[in-house]
């Protein structure tokens, strides 16, 4: 008998509610994926304002739940488990989704799974590409995180093998967009501008790639500063800033480091599958370069479609379904949000 799992996400600026069907063979099918975003309310602040995000989550939560059930053509009584992001994320934002999920689980008398947002970004790929081979390597890239993870079991064992030592990749995009007078969030406008530019026009630095640097860690702070210096120098000379070339060269530096390290980690650990997920996974140059390098190295590349890569409730429902399928113990209703939840803790 198949089971319906509801997923609730509120760790940052998207209120997400997903519904999935867990089939008896362990496969997970996407039924609904509704998201209400407060990104437009943060744009003029140049970044996510936690209190603004929390207020928006409260307003959007119940309407988003309704949209998900309408889309799936299901009733609430069809649900057999509720999964919710317990961390990592913004404390006040997490609290809204977690409180709502507890109430739904209690009222529907079904188990609650407080789960890890980062593991959700990996689990979401199974909705599109089926079961994940074990082990797999995952590269998570977004405005909040940049990590290389070894996934032995999506419901049981995830190990971080590298992460950024300063800015997240998406953060670097936002900061460089500001330097180039492009809008927030910076990923899409830089990707668009880069299409008209030459990726080798400017040799921006590749962070953490020296012989003594940690092989799988990342750094984007120096790159961001190098771009700002280059642009300021051009302006000081009275030149027009070649936005397309700067965007393309910056984007090339990011994609080069991310894919080189991910492919190297996969090769050195003998892992045959790489999943790239998170908001920055939608970047066209990152996807193209990863495809080329994975093909050269004989690695299977899986990138969920852009809608699944950004924060959503379907990823949390998918992870919840894998936990249900694996027979994992549900969370206590007293579970609290953990803004700094480590990726190795898949559920609380």
């Amino acid at each position: 008998m198949s089971r319906i799992v509801m997923g609730v996400e509120s760790s940052c600026d998207e209120t997400g509610v997903g519904l999935v069907r867990l089939h008896d063979d362990g496969t997970v099918e996407l039924l609904a994926d509704e998201v209400a975003s407060s990104v437009a309310e943060h744009a003029r602040f140049g970044g996510v304002v936690p209190e603004v995000a929390s207020r928006a989550h409260l307003e959007a939560m119940v309407p988003t739940v309704h949209r998900a059930f309408d889309t799936a053509g299901l009733r609430m009584s069809d649900v057999s488990a509720v999964a919710v992001t317990a961390g990592p994320g913004l404390a006040g934002a997490l609290l809204v989704g977690l409180s709502a999920a507890k109430a739904y689980a209690a009222a529907l008398d079904v188990p609650l799974y407080g789960v890890n947002h980062l593991a959700g970004h990996i689990a979401v790929d199974t909705l599109q590409h089926g079961p994940l081979p074990a082990p797999s390597l995952a590269l998570l890239v977004s405005g909040g995180h940049t990590q290389l993870l070894r996934v032995d079991d999506i419901a049981g064992k995830i190990t971080e093998i590298g992460s950024t030592v300063d800015d997240a990749a998406g953060e670097a995009y936002d900061k460089v967009a500001r330097v180039l007078d492009l809008p927030y969030p910076g990923g899409p406008p830089i990707d668009r501008a880069a299409r008209e530019g030459a990726p080798d026009a400017i040799a921006f630095p590749r962070g953490m790639t020296g012989p003594r640097d940690a092989a799988y860690d990342f750094s984007f702070s120096g790159l961001k500063t190098a771009v700002a210096r280059w642009v300021e120098a051009a302006q000081a000379r009275g030149e027009d800033v070649p936005v397309a070339d700067v965007a393309a060269s910056f984007q090339e530096a990011v994609a080069d480091v991310l894919t080189a390290k991910a492919v190297r980690a996969a090769t050195e650990s003998g892992i045959g599958t790489l999943v790239i997920s998170g908001g920055v996974a939608a970047n066209s140059r990152l996807a193209a370069l990863a495809a080329q390098r994975c093909a050269d190295a004989g690695i299977e590349l899986r990138i969920p479609r852009p809608r699944l890569c950004t924060d959503n409730g379907a990823m949390i429902a998918a992870l919840g379904a894998h936990l249900v399928s694996a027979g994992c113990a549900p969370s206590a209703l007293e579970v609290s949000a953990d803004p700094a939840l480590p990726v190795s803790t898949i559920s609380l």
């Binding site: 209190e51 929390s54 207020r55 989550h57 409260l58 939560m61 119940v62 739940v65 309704h66 609430m76 404390a91 006040g92 609290l95 809204v96 409180s99 709502a100 999920a101 507890k102 109430a103 739904y104 209690a106 009222a107 529907l108």
Partner: peptide, 19 residues
């Protein structure tokens, strides 16, 4: 104060909704 206040309101809303 904001953070705790929302916990009660969203709990009430979700309970009423599902019941």
């Amino acid at each position: 104060p904001f953070t705790g206040l929302r916990a009660g309101i969203v709990t009430a809303a979700a309970l009423a909704d599902s019941l």
